[in-house]
Amino acid sequence: MSTQTKSICVADVVLRTLRGRWATHILSVIASHESIHFNELKRVIPGISAKVLTEQLRFLETAGVLGRHATGNSRQEVSYTYTARGHELKHVLDSLSELATRWALS
């Protein structure tokens, strides 16, 4: 084994969750709703394809940030909400948004 240990920044765990061009946008939209259906998400995020939205939602669900819930109606719709982990991440995203606003104004 090498005497050098691989340096890992623990923040990378969170930052990897935000990978992808649309992740923060998706999380921001879901934060402004208590629960939101896939089709509504697609409508309010212009330019995102159904394929990319599906991939991002699956990744965020696997990461434990979002919960996917069947609505139980005959159209087999699903809705997405923040999990407990997602609510923790929301606080971080709120802080990042405040920082971005300050940086944009300077």
Rank of each mutant, 00 (worst) to 15 (best):
T5C: 12
V10D: 13
L93T: 02
L18S: 04
V92Q: 05
N39M: 08
V44L: 03
H25K: 09
S2D: 14
T62A: 13
F38Q: 01
A100P: 01
R21H: 11
R75P: 01
V52T: 13
Q76K: 13
K6M: 14
L99H: 06
S32D: 12
A70C: 06
V92W: 13
T81L: 05
S32E: 13
A84E: 12
Q4D: 15
V13M: 08
V78H: 04
E34A: 07
F38A: 02
H91S: 14
A31P: 03
M1S: 15
S97P: 04
Q56W: 05
I26N: 05
D94Y: 11
I48G: 01
L15R: 05
L60K: 02
G67D: 15
A70W: 02
F38L: 00
L41R: 01
V10L: 15
H25W: 09
S2L: 15
R102I: 07
I48D: 02
S95T: 11
E61K: 08
R16H: 12
S2K: 15
K42M: 03
S49W: 04
V10H: 15
R43C: 04
A104D: 07
L66K: 02
A11S: 10
L41P: 00
R102G: 08
D94N: 12
A70N: 10
A50D: 07
S35I: 00
R58D: 14
L53I: 01
K90H: 13
H87R: 11
E40T: 04
G20I: 01
I8W: 10
H37G: 02
Y80T: 00
T54G: 04
Q56A: 10
G47Y: 04
P46Q: 06
R75Q: 05
E98C: 08
R19E: 14
N39P: 00
D94Q: 11
V65K: 00
T62E: 12
E34H: 08
A104S: 12
R58F: 09
S49C: 04
R102M: 13
V44H: 02
H87P: 06
Q76V: 06
S28L: 08
Q4W: 11
I36L: 07
T3Y: 15
R16D: 12
T24H: 09
L27S: 03
S35E: 00
H37A: 07
R58A: 08
G64T: 05
G47N: 03
E77F: 04
S32C: 11
D12Q: 14
H91V: 09
V13Y: 14
H69N: 14
R16W: 12
S97V: 06
L18H: 03
I45M: 00
A50T: 04
K51C: 06
L15E: 12
L89N: 03
S79F: 03
R68E: 07
S74D: 14
Y82P: 02
S35W: 02
T101M: 09
E34V: 12
T5F: 10
A100F: 08
S106A: 07
R102A: 14
V10R: 15
S32N: 13
F59S: 13
L93Y: 04
L18W: 04
S7K: 15
R43H: 06
V52K: 10
D12L: 11
R21P: 06
S49H: 07
R68W: 00
N73V: 05
H69E: 14
A104T: 09
R85S: 11
V52P: 04
L57M: 01
L60E: 00
